[in-house]
Each structure stands twice: as structure tokens, then as C-alpha cells.
Design a protein around this nucleic acid. Sequence first.
DNA 1: TTTAATTAGTCAATATTAGTCAAACAAAAT
DNA 2: ATTTTGTTTGACTAATATTGACTAATTAAA
Lengths: 168, 168
Amino acid sequence: MKKENMSENNTNNNNNVSDLIEQYLKDILLEDDSIEIKRSDVAELFSVVPSQINYVINTRFNLQNGYIIESKRGGGGYIRIERVHFSQAQQVFDDLIDVIGDSIGQPNANQIIQALYEDDVITLREAKIMISSISKDTLRIADKVVENTVRARILVGMINRLRYEEGQ
Amino acid sequence: MKKENMSENNTNNNNNVSDLIEQYLKDILLEDDSIEIKRSDVAELFSVVPSQINYVINTRFNLQNGYIIESKRGGGGYIRIERVHFSQAQQVFDDLIDVIGDSIGQPNANQIIQALYEDDVITLREAKIMISSISKDTLRIADKVVENTVRARILVGMINRLRYEEGQ
DNA sequence: TTTAATTAGTCAATATTAGTCAAACAAAAT
DNA sequence: ATTTTGTTTGACTAATATTGACTAATTAAA
């Protein structure tokens, strides 16, 4: 992972608070793979409204950037930012997701899962779990078009989950 | 028996008393499969009102989480928390499917998957695949009622798959 | 057997967080 | 100059935790 500055400014005359908050969080993440913050604390530290923390997280700490966010509301609530490590097979995942598109039938979906298994990306048990999750009998959606749409989403969701692992 | 939570694999420094009580009870449960507490004692230990113990038990020690609760009022009353071992009892698959019914929200579904992981019925990776398959963001079904129905079917489908895998 | 004491359960009000969304504003691009 | 994109703000929403008044069950004492 590089930590180079995004294109816009190597010139540090940056009075964009969101960038400062981003840098603040990334500095802490240099120490640890995962941090927990209290939204209101960070907001106060930078004198911004709490929802700006959400903005920073949504724009700079999303999955594409290599972070997973978890949070909890209520007393003792928190936002956790965790850095993830991407697996090798990104291109394969991209291609598969491309093939799936936004609709896929059960036979094709099974083929894709089978291929992942044969490529040692997933185990046999994982393959079986995935197959059962998208089977026609499991979904039981009357409208074929909707069924294929939902199946595509589930399959893409699971494949996206294979992209990364937490921790080191 | 895993002690780390899937979503909390790091040092967790939050000030939420309910979480502390949960951890306190789970620490004791590491020794024994079943414990008996006196509600008022635990409440006093953590300086909370007694009914908060009920809150902790209801939210963290329900069947979905792999625990059975029994209690008795009156003099010498108690609350017993008993850990259920999923892998030991086919029956529990039935109970889980019963709990799921034909509709389930994402938080409850995640709890069930988490419990299956903690009881070594599924691996961490399998748990994460399952969670992503039923997540709100994956399904993206506008109608909440339909979403919960589809989620229930997917989860039941996957759990049934695990049942047939039993005994490798 | 009746009553008192001793437990746990329920439920709703309140408190404490984080999330969403769209409007206002600012900066960059055309 | 205008349009497009990114940032900041705050009103409203949602989730979770905490508290306490009231209820219910059980045992102990009168």
C-alpha cells in the first residue's frame, strides 16, 4: 500500500478540513491496523459537525481505498476503521463481476462458483454454501427477472467479499 | 471456542457497560458451559440497575447467540445462562430455522452467523461470505418486508446446506 | 394459610450515540 | 461566465444503552 498524496496537492497549503481529518486518521492507522473513534470527539477536535466525519469516511475510507468501516450507536458508540489487505486475484474478480452484470441465471451462476473452486479461490464447502444461497429453490422469487437480478447481487456481493482479508 | 468476535478482532476500549457485563459473563462461561448468577449481585458489581442485566441477556445471550436462559424468582432466585453447542445437536439447526421463520432482519441474521462461527460450525471465511450474501447492501431490495423474506430464505438455505455437511 | 420478604421480568421513558439527506457554499473545470 | 464537482452544515432519523416504576413468581415467616 502506498501512502502517497492524492493528485491534488503536494503543496501543503491545504485549508480543507476533510483532508486534515483524513490525514489525522491515517496517521493513527500507521500505528495500528484498526482504530476506533468516537464521532463527536473527532468532530469537536476539528470544530466541524459530526456528520462531516461520515463524509470523510465515505469519501476516503471506503472499500475501494482498502478500508472497512463498522460502527455502533448508543452509549459507548464508536466508528471503527479497519485497513484490509487485498488478495491477488483482483482481475479475476473484476472479470467475473463483469460477466455477471446485473442479472444471471442459476446455471451460469453455478458455473462461476465452480470456476472459483477449480481455481482454488474458494473451498468446496464455500462453493456449496454459495451455490445454496443463490439457488432457485432457496430464493423462490416468482418473477424470473427479479430472481436473476437478486441472484446477481448476491453473487457479486460474495465475490466482493473474497477480495480482501483483514489484519496483516 | 473462539473468544474473538468476528467484527472485533482488536483491542476494544469502549465504555459501554453492557459490553463489559457481556464480557464478564462470557469469561466465566469459558470455564463452564453453564453459570448461575444472582441478578442483583451482578448489577451491583457494575453499578447498574438490575433490569440492565436483563437487557444484556436479551441482547447478547439469546438462542440466536447460542445460549439458553432459565431463571427463578423469589428467595434464592437466579438466572442461569447455558451455552448451547450447535455442532453437537442437529436439533439446533431446526431451532435456528424456527427462529428465522420466513422473515429476518440483518442484525439478527448476523448474530446467527456469528454464533455458528463461534461454535466452529463454520469458518471465519464462510461466515463472512454468508454475511455478505444476506447484507442489506448486497440485496438492495426496496421493500423491507420483501428484503427480510428473501434474507430468511437465503439463510435457511445455507443452514440446510450445513446440516447435510455434518459429519464431513 | 395468609402475609411479608425476596427475588426476577416487563415496559416505556430518557439518554446517548451514529446515519441520512439535502441545502448552502466553495472550488475546480469547461 | 457557467457548469460541475466537492465540501460543509444542520435538521431529522435510527440504533443502542440506561434507568426506574411497576408487575409477577417464589420462598419464608407469622
